[in-house]
Structures are given as C-alpha cells and as structure tokens.
Design a protein around this nucleic acid. Sequence first.
DNA 1: GACAATTATATAAAGAGTTATATATTGACA
DNA 2: TGTCAATATATAACTCTTTATATAATTGTC
Lengths: 201, 201
Amino acid sequence: MSLEHILLGLLREPASGYDLKKLFEERLSHIWRAELSQIYPTLKRLERRGLVDSREAAARRGSGRRLYALTKAGRQELHVWLSGPPQFADERMAWVAQLYFMGELEDLDQTMRFLGSVRAHFAAKLAALSAIQRMWTAADPRYPRDLPVEDLHVHFALRKGMCSLAAHIEWCDESVAELTARLEARSSGTSREPGAAEEAP
Amino acid sequence: MSLEHILLGLLREPASGYDLKKLFEERLSHIWRAELSQIYPTLKRLERRGLVDSREAAARRGSGRRLYALTKAGRQELHVWLSGPPQFADERMAWVAQLYFMGELEDLDQTMRFLGSVRAHFAAKLAALSAIQRMWTAADPRYPRDLPVEDLHVHFALRKGMCSLAAHIEWCDESVAELTARLEARSSGTSREPGAAEEAP
DNA sequence: GACAATTATATAAAGAGTTATATATTGACA
DNA sequence: TGTCAATATATAACTCTTTATATAATTGTC
C-alpha cells in the first residue's frame, strides 16, 4: 500500500497526523493526496506493525497531539520500497473519457469550450508548480545542478509535474488548432452541414 | 460515478458485460480500465435506474448472454455528462513518490536504474498508441483532418495519451542528463565523497 | 462575552475498485 | 478421452478513498 510508504517517507522528522496532512498539501499535492480520516488509522496500523512509534506531546492548541516517528524497521521497510521497481497504476481520466465520447453531441463549439476549460485547469496547476520552482531558484543558488541529493530528487518530482502539465497544454493547443481549422472549413466553402443552408435559401 | 457514464458511452451499440470488458481493453485502455466484477453490477444498477435495458440473446459459446442497450433516459444522462464541465481527479502516482523520497537511499545509481525502468515503461506504452495511430492513418485517408466528428474526438483522446507519454519520456531524458552530469562531476575533479578517497590513499 | 478560525484526534458509513472464486458451455487439440 | 482456452455471468471478500460527523481546547476578533 503506497500511502503507508509515503507516510514512512514523510516521517523522517517526527510529525502528528495533522502535521502529515499539511505536508501532503504543501509538498506532495502534485503527487498524492490523503485525508485525515485515512491518515489516522494508517498511522495506527503502522504502529501496530512496529514501523513507527509514537509519543504524546503538548498541543499548540486543541487536544493533545501524538507525534509519530520512524523506527528502524520502518526505515528498512521504506528502503525496500524505494529500492523496488517503480509502482505504476493505470490512470483513470474521466475528462478524457468525456472527450472520447463527445462526438455524440455533434456540437464542436461544446468541444471547443471543453478544451478551453481543460487548458485553464492545467495552466493554473502549472503556474503553481512554476512558482515553487521560481521560489526555489531564487532561494538556493545551487539549484538544480548542485543541490544536495535529497533535494535533487524532489526537484525531479517537481519537474515531472511541470513537464506533464506543459505537455497537456500543448496538446490542448494542438487540438484547438485542429478544431479551428475544421470549423473554418465548415463556415467557408464546401459545406454539407444542415445548419449552413439556412443562411441563403 | 464515471464508470456508469463510460458504460453509457460504450452502449451506443448493444453489448453484453463481456463485450464491454473487451471494449475497455481494445479502445479505452489508455483512459480507463474496468473489471468484469465491476461491470456486471454496474449494468444492473443502470438497468434498475432505467438508463439501459437488456434482453437475453444466444451465446456464441458458454451460457446465455444478456445484451444491454441505451434507453432514451440513458442517452439523455450521457448527454448531461458530456455537456458538463470536465471531471478532473488528482492522480496518485506512487512511482513519483518513490522518486521524491529516493534521496534517502543516497545511491544515485539506483536512481539511474529507476529512471531507466520508468522510461522503458512509458516507451512501451507510447509504442502501443503510435501503432494504433499508424494503423488508423494507413486505413483512413481522411485522418485526421477530415474524419467524421465522432472519430475526431477519439483521435483527440489518442493524441492526449501520446503527448503525455512523449513528455514523460523527455522528462526521463532530462533527468538522466542532469544525473549524468552530476555523476561525472563526482567521478572527476572536486570530490568530497567517502568512496572516492579509497582510490589513491 | 460571543463567535469564528485553527489545532488536534477519532470514527462511521458509503463509494469505488481489485482479487478470488464459482458456475456452465463450447470448440480445438492431443 | 481429457484438458485447455474462450465465452459468459455472478458474487463474496477485501482494500482503498471520500464524505460526514463528533469531540475538545485555544486564540483572535467584533
């Protein structure tokens, strides 16, 4: 189970369930997301298996917090996961399925609007990752060539997100261009469209 | 629930659960996957809701088959889904998480091997999609500019997969190049590595 | 002093997907 | 004749994830 391993990875420094949720949002939002209702029971399971241990600590506010930390066995398990083969899972992309079936609507304007929404979505995500990279570049003169090994890997993961998103945007533009060419061909000369005949009967 | 809508999309022609599983594998493998154990109960649910209806039919082999077909309500529901906003879901990419934490291992050779596996994986997937595109190009002289509207959308979805995969491969190459530069810098001149001192003590 | 926001943990219930298993029929091949 | 592969449906058990809800203390604000 990947969530377990990711929690082990995040627990290089001791953290509470609440902290871990924040770490997911701040550092891993482009890779994985997890809800508190999933994190808490998973931490308990990891503790039962001896991969993490916990101690109570004073809360800044609210009820007491429980800080979890990696055990030796936990670090070993993490290394096994990291040394193993890449774990691929096939994606489920509902929005691509929508596009796949959208010919059914026979409405290329709808397709155009749809591609616009898609492009905006990915552009926003790319802007967020670019901002992170810019911050990093400004803050650390070693970026990225001379980063410490750990940060280099984080950099790779960030670049993965940026490259994917940039490709999505380019694909949107390619598709919009193909659609536009088609719509122009339709509105000018050779038209067999049912709607076009209404213009000059 | 997206699987329901995808089944509605596939059911433009009547099909059995078994047929639909094949359609997922043949046409939608780069977009969505579904197991028979998920398809059968989903079809029953769709029938209870009046979005599809079914009739028994003779099986080519095996026990009798049940053919499902879209109802009017089903087609309407499909159109609502297709007219709605794109449904994005954040991906969970275990392999990127592995890379993110891989600095922990302090073994850049392992990182290199990992990136090699990743590249091979995506290259194989891209080859599969490219083959589909080549077949299509060869079979239909209208590809892609003058395709019927329906096929144009299928083409867009295929191109989405190809663009993503090509970007993944480029990212792999970029990362390998950065890693290589680093490994060469380490093996030549300025070395503070613990292993390097053993060469000439 | 009331109220909202934040910090913090916990659990129940539902939904989505995977794995394993059971059944039955037919055709091909050895 | 036996058995393997393909066609076809069905269900149980399990895992993973989301949504909703409950509790409780503290800080800042109006």
